[in-house]
Amino acid sequence: MAAAESYPDDLLYNEEHDWARIEGDEALLGITWHAADALGELVHYEPPAVGATISKDESYGEIESVKAVSDLISPLSGEVLEVNDIVVGTPETVNLDPYGNGWLVRIRLSDPSEKDVLLDLADYRKVLDEQ
């Protein structure tokens, strides 16, 4: 059973429906409820390698349902510290708990100032309203 629609106000977002939870010089990244709902039940997560460098606004992996595939567009740049193996094993975790157990990667930020251009909840809601 998928989670109910929600968007936490302690996260930062981009227009491609990815979120970031910044904790010091690290961040957890994931996709929003909206993105997970649009894809449907997820069946595959193609993560980056631990140690890889990922860049803001570029794809760092892919996530798939039966009928669709979506690039994961990173909201921030950094080095991948950890991949969420729970999602690798049971991708539907993202549908069930997009902001908790459904996180996708943990990164060390290479340019913390990038967060300044991300959307807060109010701005992200405007993006959703336009769709």
Binding site: H44, E64, S65, V66, K67, A68, V69
Partner: peptide, 12 residues
């Protein structure tokens, strides 16, 4: 595994 295929993944 149709997401491998052209009708879904197109240029990729």
């Amino acid at each position: 595994l149709q997401t491998r295929e052209q009708h879904i993944r197109r240029e990729k």
